[in-house]
Write a protein that binds this DNA or RNA. Structure first.
Length: 687
DNA sequence: GCCGCCCGACTTTTT
DNA sequence: GTCGGGCGGC
C-alpha cells in the first residue's frame, strides 16, 4: 500500500468539524484512516485521553493501539482510550457504580455463570433450555428491553420473560452484572443522570467507532449519548460486511445515522488495495444482488489477475484433496497461474486459507492436510489453551519436555510461588546469559554460589530436583489410569488447587478454573491410552503413550499457538472469523445451497437472512488477494447419508462468464447451473 | 430411577 | 470426532 493517503481517505481524516461516516469497503485501508485520524486529532489539540477508539474485540483494540503507537509514538498512545465497548462499559460502571446502586466491587458474570443463574432462576436443569433463555434474554437486553418492557410473542417467550424477571432480581441481589449490562447500565445511567452524562461527554470528546455495522441497538444508544449535542465522532463500517445480525447487530444503525445527524459527512472508501480485478468484480457482482443502503463499488489498480476458479468436487473428501492439490501446485509454480501479477516468487503455506461456513467443515480438510504433511491452524478455535490455568500447567509440561525452554521455566518456577523471587531469578538470568546456558542448566552450576546465597540456591535446587524427578516419572508412566494418578499427584505436590483459590478473589471463578484443570488432566490421561477396548468380540489394549509423549504433542500445539501468525501454516477458518483478514490464495469451501447460503431444515429463509448469507459470501471473496477458488460439491453429506448437492446461487451471481462466449460448452454448462440455482432461489425464498 | 449405550446431528461468536 | 438426547434395561 502506498505510504500516502488517497483523496477519500484524506477527506475522512480531515473532516473534524462534525459527525462522519466512513464507508470502508473491504481492503480499503480503514485502520489507516482511523490511526491517521487519531494523529490528526492530536494535531488539532485534542489530548490523547480525550480520544476514544472503540472496537468489538480485545484483539482489535490491541491491534489498533499498536498501529496508533507506530504513528504517534508510545507516549501519546499510552493515554489514548482504545477499548472495546464492554471494557469502556466496565470503566464507566466502576466510576459511576454508586449512582446505579452498584457496589464499587461488583462482579461480572461470564457466559457460564449466567447459564448457572438462569437454570437456578428458571428451576430447570436442562442446559439446552437454559441456553435458549440466555440467548433470548441477551437479544432482548441488546434491544434495550428489560423484563417489564418485553412483549412476549409466544409461550416460550412468556416463560423466558418470567425467568428474566427472576434473573434480574438475582443479579441485583448478587451485585453482579452480565456482559450485556456492561453496555445497558451505562446507557441507563446516561438516560437519567444529566450530570454523569455531561461528565463523560467531556472526558471522551471524540469518538471513533470501528466496525460500526456490527453495533446493536443499545450500543448505538450509548454512543449517541456519549457523543451528545456536539456529535464529534467518526463511525467506520461497511454495510456489505454486516454478518452479525444473528447476535443483535443491526444495520438500522447505519440507516438512521444520516437521518439523526443531517450534517453527517458520508465518505465511501472504494479503492481496494488488496485484490486483483477478477476477484473484485466477482465480489461486486455478488453483493450487487443485495438492496443498497449506500452506493459503493470497489475498484483496484492491481490489474485483472487470475480468473476466479469454480472447482467441482464429488464430495467433501474430494474437495479436501483438490484443495491440497491446489496448495501444492501453486507452491510448485511459485504462485503463477495465468497472470502472475506481482512477483512470482515463493509461495508459503501461510499464504493460503480455506474458508467455510460452519466449523465442522474443517475436519475433513484437517485430515487431508495432515496426510499431505502440510502444517495448518484452525483459527477462531480452541481458546482452552489460552486460559491462564492451562497455560500454567502447559509451562510445566513444556519444561519437562525441554528443560531449556526458559519462558516455561520462568512460569513454572513461579507457579505457584515457592519463595523464589525476582532477585533470585534476575541473578540466575544474568548468570545463564554470561555462560550461555539455559536457566535450568544454570541452576545446577557449581559456580552459582558466587552470585546467589545458599538459601536461594537451596530453593532452586529443590525445584530442579523436583522437575527432574517428575520428568523421570512422566517418561516412565503410561496408560490412562497411571497417567491420571501421576498428574493428580503432581498437582497435589505443587498445591495448585490452593494456588488457584488464593489467586482468585471470587471463589466461584477459582472453582471453575480448577474444573478446567481437572478436565485438562483427563484430556491428557485419555491421550495416554491403554484402555481395554472391545472391538468385535476381540479385546485388546490400545497403544499406550507415556505422559512425556503426550506432553510433547501438547508443547507442539502450544508453540504453534503462541507464535500465532508468524507460523508458516495454512489457515482454516470460518467465514465469520475471517473478516478483517486476507490471504494471497483463498479457497471457499462447500459453496452449495444449504451450506452457503446456510439453511437449516426447520426454519425458513427470509430475504434478510439470505442477504446476510450473501454478505458472508462477499466477505469470503474479498479475503483473497491473488487467487480465489470457489468449491462446489456435487454430492454432500447430510447427517449420516449423502445427498445430491446444488451449487450455491452465489456462484451464478458472481457473473464469472460475463466476457466469455456462450458457445463454449463449459460455459453452457455453467449457464445451466446458474438457471438451476435461480430455480433453487425461487423455491427457497418466500417474498 | 439411574446408568449406559446408541444414534444422530453438527450455524455463525464476542464480551 | 464429539456431545447430547432418548430409550431400554437393570
Amino acid at each position: 500500500m502506498a505510504d500516502t493517503l488517497n483523496s477519500a481517505q484524506m477527506d475522512a481524516v480531515h473532516h473534524l468539524g462534525g459527525p462522519c461516516l466512513v464507508l470502508a469497503g473491504a481492503g480499503s485501508g480503514k485502520t489507516r484512516v482511523i490511526t491517521h485520524k487519531i494523529a490528526r486529532l492530536l494535531q488539532a489539540d485534542y489530548a490523547p485521553s480525550q480520544i476514544a477508539a472503540i472496537t468489538f474485540t480485545n484483539k482489535a483494540a490491541q491491534e489498533m493501539r499498536e498501529r496508533a503507537k507506530a504513528l504517534i509514538g508510545p507516549r501519546a498512545a499510552k493515554d489514548l482510550v482504545v477499548s472495546t465497548f464492554h471494557s469502556l462499559g466496565v470503566r464507566i460502571l466502576r466510576t459511576e457504580g454508586e449512582r446505579l446502586g452498584l457496589k464499587p466491587q461488583f462482579s461480572i458474570l461470564d457466559s457460564d455463570d449466567v447459564l448457572g443463574v438462569l437454570k437456578d432462576a428458571g428451576g430447570s436443569s436442562d442446559n439446552a433450555l437454559a441456553r435458549r433463555w440466555q440467548w433470548t434474554i441477551s437479544l432482548w437486553k441488546n434491544q434495550g428491553l428489560n423484563a417489564d418492557s418485553v412483549e412476549p410473542q409466544n409461550d416460550d417467550e412468556r416463560i423466558a420473560q418470567q425467568v428474566m424477571k427472576r434473573y434480574e432480581e438475582r443479579l441485583a441481589a448478587y451485585q453482579a452484572v452480565d456482559f450485556d449490562d456492561l453496555i445497558g447500565l451505562p446507557h441507563q445511567l446516561f438516560q437519567r443522570d444529566d450530570e454523569a452524562r455531561a461528565k463523560w461527554q467531556n472526558t471522551l470528546r471524540y469518538l471513533l467507532v470501528d466496525e460500526y455495522q456490527d453495533t446493536n441497538a443499545i450500543q448505538y444508544e450509548l454512543l449517541k449519548s456519549l457523543a451528545g449535542e456536539r456529535a464529534m465522532f467518526t463511525a467506520v463500517g461497511d454495510d456489505d460486511q454486516s454478518i452479525y445480525g444473528w447476535r443483535g447487530a443491526t444495520i438500522e444503525n447505519l440507516r438512521r445515522l444520516p437521518n439523526e445527524y443531517p450534517q453527517l459527512k458520508v465518505i465511501p472508501l472504494e479503492q481496494n488495495y488488496r485484490s486483483t480485478g477478477h476477484i473484485l468484480r466477482a465480489a461486486n457482482a455478488v453483493i450487487g444482488h443485495n438492496p443498497k443502503l449506500f452506493e459503493k463499488k470497489l475498484w483496484s489498480d492491481l490489474g485483472d489477475g487470475d480468473p476466479v476458479q469454480v472447482v467441482e468436487c464429488d464430495n467433501e473428501e474430494h474437495e479436501a484433496e483438490r484443495a491440497v492439490a491446489r496448495i501444492q501446485s501453486l507452491r510448485a509454480q511459485g504462485g503463477a497461474l495465468v497472470n502472475a501479477g506481482g512477483q512470482g516468487g515463493e509461495v508459503a503455506f501461510k499464504d493460503f486459507a480455506v474458508l467455510y461456513r460452519a466449523n465442522h467443515q474443517a475436519r475433513v480438510f484437517e485430515k487431508a492436510l495432515r496426510r499431505a504433511e502440510i502444517p495448518y491452524k484452525v483459527s477462531g478455535g480452541q481458546s482452552f489453551f489460552d486460559r491462564a490455568e492451562i497455560k500454567d500447567l502447559c509451562a510445566w509440561l513444556r519444561l519437562l519436555v525441554n528443560n531449556d525452554d526458559d519462558p516455561a521455566f520462568l512460569r513454572a518456577v513461579t507457579t505457584p510461588k515457592r519463595g523464589i523471587g525476582h532477585q533470585t531469578l534476575g541473578a540466575l538470568g544474568e548468570f545463564s546469559k554470561r555462560f550461555k546456558t539455559s536457566l535450568y542448566e544454570a541452576l545446577f552450576a557449581e559456580s552459582l554460589g558466587t552470585v546467589l546465597n545458599a538459601r536461594a540456591i537451596g530453593s532452586l535446587h529443590e525445584f530442579g530436583r523436583y522437575v527432574n524427578d517428575l520428568e523421570y516419572r512422566a517418561r516412565h508412566t503410561s496408560g490412562s489410569e497411571d497417567a491420571k494418578a501421576l498428574l493428580l499427584g503432581w498437582l497435589k505436590d505443587i498445591d495448585y488447587e490452593k494456588h488457584l483459590y488464593e489467586g482468585e478473589d471470587s471463589e466461584k471463578l477459582a472453582a471453575s478454573r480448577w474444573t478446567n484443570v481437572l478436565d485438562f488432566v483427563d484430556w491428557i490421561a485419555k491421550r495416554c491410552g491403554g484402555e481395554i477396548e472391545n472391538d468385535g468380540g476381540a479385546t485388546f489394549e490400545t497403544e499406550k503413550k507415556t505422559v512425556l509423549d503426550v506432553a510433547q504433542t501438547i508443547s507442539v500445539i502450544i508453540s504453534l499457538a503462541e507464535r500465532g501468525d508468524e507460523q508458516d501454516v495454512v489457515t482454516l477458518s470460518t467465514l465469520h472469523a475471517s473478516k478483517g483478514l486476507e490471504w494471497p490464495h483463498v479457497v471457499l469451501a462447500g459453496v452449495n445451497e444449504g451450506l452457503l447460503p446456510f439453511k437449516s431444515d426447520d426454519d425458513e429463509m427470509t430475504p434478510e437472512r439470505l442477504e446476510e448469507e450473501r454478505r458472508l459470501m462477499y466477505v469470503g471473496i474479498t479475503r483473497a488477494r491473488r487467487t480465489l477458488a470457489v468449491n462446489v460439491l456435487r454430492r454432500r453429506k447430510k447427517g449420516r447419508d449423502t445427498v445430491q448437492a446444488i451449487p450455491s446461487r452465489f456462484i451464478g451471481e458472481m457473473k464469472l462468464h460475463e466476457a466469455k462466449s456462450k458457445e463454449d460448452p463449459r460455459e453452457k454448462l455453467r449457464l445451466l447451473r446458474e438457471a438451476a440455482a435461480k430455480r433453487a432461489a425461487q423455491a427457497d425464498v418466500k417474498p
